[in-house]
Design a protein around this nucleic acid. Structure first.
Length: 210
DNA sequence: CATTTGATGTTCT
DNA sequence: GAACATCAAATGC
């Protein structure tokens, strides 16, 4: 056996604030293996939720049966069911008890697109396979069965990306929530067509110097 | 193009 | 009973 050419993210990567992890997950590769085969994509959009300090966080009002995984150690999956039909995948961050997490909102599919199409529908454009948190989970076959899964596991893991290009990253207000949405904790890869909503053009982001 | 609406079921109040 | 870290289809320009 030799070392994998594409290193897994170590647990220490997740043992930081959710905002830092959300930013640094952009450009990493999310992998998924099921009986259907291997699928993967480059993370292009994330959102941070800051535990008890964040009115939008599921952990804001304390621990419940649903959010228990958020209160555990970093580097595990928090998966929940919402709107009666969709699942959302988060990476738990920070130390035990902190209850922070990063919602994985979109990936650019890179491996197993045929499998994703089987799950999402044969006529779905590649761009829409995993553009949005619910679509991402459907494309990868993630459900609450995966709640609590190790993000360095055999069925679900996140690695560095081979030949990763430099990225321009932008922080924006969060999407799809009513409380504290204005906090600039949504992170996206500029110029990516694979984020939810409209692409953010890097030329629109340059700020201080005209 | 943008905006609105309906679907669907669990969780929490 | 209300809200929901959403999506796809329908409607309005």
């Amino acid at each position: 056996m030799t070392d994998s050419p594409i290193p897994l993210l170590p647990r220490a990567f997740y043992d930081r604030s959710s905002v830092e992890v959300a930013r640094d997950l952009l450009g990493k590769t999310l992998w998924r293996r099921t009986e259907a085969g291997l699928t993967a994509g480059i993370i292009v959009e994330t959102e941070a939720y800051d535990g008890a300090n964040d009115p939008a966080s599921h952990a804001w009002r304390g621990q419940t049966q649903r959010n228990a995984v958020m209160f555990g150690p970093p580097g595990y999956a928090y998966v929940y069911f919402t709107y009666g039909m969709h699942y959302c995948l988060n990476a738990v961050t920070g130390p035990v008890g902190q209850a922070s997490a990063v919602l994985l909102r979109a990936i650019q599919p890179s491996v197993g697109l045929d499998i994703m199409r089987e799950r999402r529908g044969a006529t779905i454009p590649d761009r829409d396979l995993a553009r949005g948190p619910g679509r991402l989970c459907q494309a990868l076959g993630i459900t609450t069965t995966d709640n609590g899964a190790d993000l360095a596991g055999d069925a679900l893991w996140i690695s560095e990306t081979a030949d990763a290009p430099d990225l321009i990253i932008v922080a924006t207000p969060r999407i799809g929530i009513t409380r504290a949405a204005e906090r600039p904790w949504r992170f996206a890869v500029c110029d990516s067509r694979y984020i939810s909503g409209r692409p953010v053009r890097s030329r629109d982001v340059q700020s201080t110097t005209p």
